[in-house]
């Protein structure tokens, strides 16, 4: 069931290949003409207007959290090349009708990919807007047939010590694991991304296929998935195991529930330059109309 959700964010002036002067460049030129110089880069225009448009390819692909390759933001871009992403297969097991090892090509031949421009909010209080290409997780789950007893979906990232230099140190309990409630997993906003800006997703962003759940903090969107298990009980999740007080199972973006060590009320949009400042974080990262119903009656202070 592709195309169940329609973008409200525009890619209008974000295509990097665009030849003509776009709005940002015009703003930068105007600033330069006014003797200000292109301080903070042309992207300052975005913060000023409050308009949301995707970050640039370089921003999306050089500033990543992928601790299997190191804890520095530029480590993944530097070291994730070592990951072999082809061939790739995903084991789908547990409470499904057709368990098995599905090759990436096999999956792609059955899925309809589309573009989804989503806000991306990291638990560290920075944010981007990313034009993903991918398919709905629901389609993949329908392909394997979910049994009625399944209540949760568990995910696992590849663990390859030979290719992942970061896993030699126990920053987290490897392999990285994540989970969703089944209704969250089946939600039309939840996708498996295989591309960005129409190009294959780079290794540092979770090649060849990763989860994207735009109303949750970024760490829920697990990368380089090798296993998807349909289960009855809430599965363990990596950051929750590392520090349950700070990272809950749900981890919905919520400006009213702070991380114990920092406020979640505001965020730094990436790409605004040094003087851009913060903006207010939106409930469910701005997807409240679509997903708030999933959590009706739940105390979000308790189920953070």
């Amino acid at each position: 069931m592709a195309y169940r959700w329609t973008n409200d964010l525009s890619r209008e002036d974000a295509t990097p290949e665009r030849a003509f002067l776009n709005r940002r460049q015009i703003m930068a030129a105007a600033a330069a003409a006014a003797g200000l110089g292109a301080i903070g880069g042309p992207r300052g225009a975005r913060a000023a207007t409050g308009e949301l448009d995707p970050n640039e390819w370089d921003e999306i692909t050089t500033y990543n959290n992928y601790y299997e390759f190191g804890t520095g933001k530029s480590d993944p871009a530097q070291y994730a090349d070592a990951l072999t992403t082809s061939p790739w297969s995903v084991t789908i097991d547990g409470l499904v009708d057709r368990p098995g090892e599905y090759s990436f090509d096999d999956i792609m031949s059955k899925m309809t990919t589309e573009e989804r421009i989503y806000r991306f909010r990291c638990v560290e209080a920075w944010s981007m807007v990313i034009p993903w290409n991918g398919f709905e997780l629901a389609d993949l789950l329908d392909m394997v047939g979910v049994k009625s007893s399944a209540k949760y979906v568990a995910f696992e990232t590849a663990l390859r010590p030979d290719e992942m230099r970061g896993v030699s140190f126990p920053v987290l309990d490897w392999p990285y694991v994540e989970g969703l409630r089944l209704d969250e997993a089946m939600h039309p906003l939840t996708i498996i991304a295989t591309g960005i800006y129409g190009r294959d997703i780079p290794n540092q962003n979770g090649a060849p296929l990763r989860l994207v759940v735009p109303w949750k903090y970024g760490f829920k969107s697990i990368k380089s998935i090798v296993r998807i298990s349909l289960v009855e009980d809430q599965p363990p999740t990596s950051w929750n195991k590392a520090n349950a007080r700070e990272y809950g199972f749900y981890s919905n973006v919520n400006p009213e529930v702070d991380h114990p060590r920092w406020s979640q009320a505001t965020e730094r949009p990436i790409g605004g330059g040094i003087f851009a400042g913060r903006k207010e974080t939106l409930m469910f990262n701005g997807y409240g109309d679509d997903v708030a119903a999933l959590y009706e009656g739940m105390d979000l202070n308790k189920y953070y």
Binding site: G40, N55, Y63, K73, R268, I270
Partner: peptide
């Protein structure tokens, strides 16, 4: 470097 946009994409954190 931060002012001219050469401190990476999150210059405030970097600085």
């Amino acid at each position: 470097l931060g002012v001219v946009g050469r401190l990476g994409v999150d210059p405030v954190k970097e600085l």
